[in-house]
Nucleic acid binder design. Sequence first.
DNA 1: AATTGATACTAGAACGATCTAGACAGTGCT
DNA 2: AGCACTGTCTAGATCGTTCTAGTATCAATT
Lengths: 342, 342
Amino acid sequence: MQVTSEGTPGRRTTLADVAAAAGVSRALASIVMRGAEGAGEATRRRVLEVASELGYRPDSRARLLRSSRTRLLGVTFTLSEPFHGEVVESIYAAAEAAGFDVTLSAVGPRRPESRALESLLDAGIEAALMISPSSAPEELAAYARQVPVVSLLSPTSAEGVDVVRSDDGAGVRAAVEHLVSLGHRNIVHIDGAGAVAAEERSAAYRLTMQEYGLSANIRVLHGGAHEEDGLRAGGELVAGSVPDAVVAFNDRCALGVLEAVRRAGLNVPEDLSVAGYDDSQLARLSHVQLTSVSQDAPRLAEAAVGCAAARLASKEPAGLVHQPQLVVRATTGPAPAASSVR
Amino acid sequence: MQVTSEGTPGRRTTLADVAAAAGVSRALASIVMRGAEGAGEATRRRVLEVASELGYRPDSRARLLRSSRTRLLGVTFTLSEPFHGEVVESIYAAAEAAGFDVTLSAVGPRRPESRALESLLDAGIEAALMISPSSAPEELAAYARQVPVVSLLSPTSAEGVDVVRSDDGAGVRAAVEHLVSLGHRNIVHIDGAGAVAAEERSAAYRLTMQEYGLSANIRVLHGGAHEEDGLRAGGELVAGSVPDAVVAFNDRCALGVLEAVRRAGLNVPEDLSVAGYDDSQLARLSHVQLTSVSQDAPRLAEAAVGCAAARLASKEPAGLVHQPQLVVRATTGPAPAASSVR
DNA sequence: AATTGATACTAGAACGATCTAGACAGTGCT
DNA sequence: AGCACTGTCTAGATCGTTCTAGTATCAATT
């Protein structure tokens, strides 16, 4: 199997090697490699051939060091959030299309967001995309003074920070309307308990209920962003008077609710409908089939990258709020007859 | 809106600035900043003070470019695998303790492992930690010729690649023994269906069953690494003669099995015990409480980092196979009386 | 007093790329 | 012939560090 020569073991082939082998100057080789104009067709081909022959790979460190435009985007995300993963994946695609490189930095219980961002700054990023940032607005604003910062998914009051997200109000509204159209009246909301965007979702729930003349049925339970929270809230729910339907803060919370409901011996959606938020992979699992509000990760990622690009070009970014879409699956169904009659 | 002073807007403070302000040479400032010896106590303090005053942050690109020892570890992982996330988190901690920086590169449906690794190489990593690598052995071997490569979690036949993992055989054995000790006899294994490490786990299942004189009860179902696979296999299971217990390939698969079992109206662990593998966060969720084999992510991460460090120091790495531990939770219990009698 | 040997410090060359300014040849125009 | 212009190409500076080789300074040893 023998892996060709590959030159001296330790040394990596540099642009100078390529230039020498092709009989041109380093500068010209550089022009060819980065596809700039100012090189003859014949030499261009020759240099490229020599480069691939020598297995040349540009050293991004050196490149970044010299050129002020690093074309490098930094992304912070939370490891334990499945939906963040989906967004990251989409960011890779969107960034590549826009000619950016991407470097990741994870946030976790042992690794605060501040450290994650600092390591990105050290790496020389041109702009930062922060997925559901948890830092205080002043901190975010401080970062934004160094590089353009885009907050993905969650709104923030931080000055100088762009926000790309979906219209959470519209998403919750769609979920409630869907349930109402199925004949549900007693629709409970399990909130995000202080999580980012939780307030907006609760407010939209209340407002939509009002609009449909269901003010009397408004009921908000203290929930949270994780399965545990949903389980707890769901437990409270089934212990009291069981409603027709539940709109949970997010998918993970909804899963907890589902579990609590099943434990109580109720069937979904026959006895109770449940809707989540995020349309994460969790929701799509064949044994879950959770009705959920889709945030359209690819579109959001594209918008975020576009926003960063616009800032770097000193333009005003546009199209930062997207309309989410309700994806109806198996956890919502017609209201039980008894209930719609009341 | 006014963007505070912070010196010249675009320019970032450099080591030369610090040196000038402190009245020393760049070289000396460099010595102080990286804590090398060869600087007087008084000057050291002065330089450090000036540095923090100017808000100096070393430019890692320039640093990496110059010094051959970049102290940078690259990690490839799969976004959609929760357990990978846990390992990544632990790697951050272990790397920091060992004086390494970490840069991540994600693998996903749209982003092959080869690209993930190449981007790491471009970033100038000194060694690569690949979590459950999916590349062909020849490819891995080719990477290993450029930098030390450690395969985490899954074994590989690739030449020159170190493997850090837990003893999967011992893990499965522990699970089976646990079930046997609870009185179970009809223990079914749902395998990984070609996933890495699947063979080893199946083999250990067969062997352990034999050792306990249960050869006649050996039964292996075609499974997989995801919830869907477990659901399908679980469906087959409950359609035929229901066993006492199930050892699933991993936690996600086990979750699918649980779902299938519940749909069939059976109770866990009263009617059927289920054990998973990975002890992922999924297993620990309060509504799941899955008995599972723990791979001890922190220890594995530490070993992997240690292994890479050893290779970089041209030493032989040690302690690469760890003993997993069974974590007993709520999904396994005593065998139903009827069954133990047969 | 001369040699050694630390210790504290510095000038200048790397690292591998990009960028600036300009050289050189060939063409077209007056 | 002289000039401006265009398209290729090159020498050398430059990015912000680290590293090498060496220079002072001063105390301790011979």
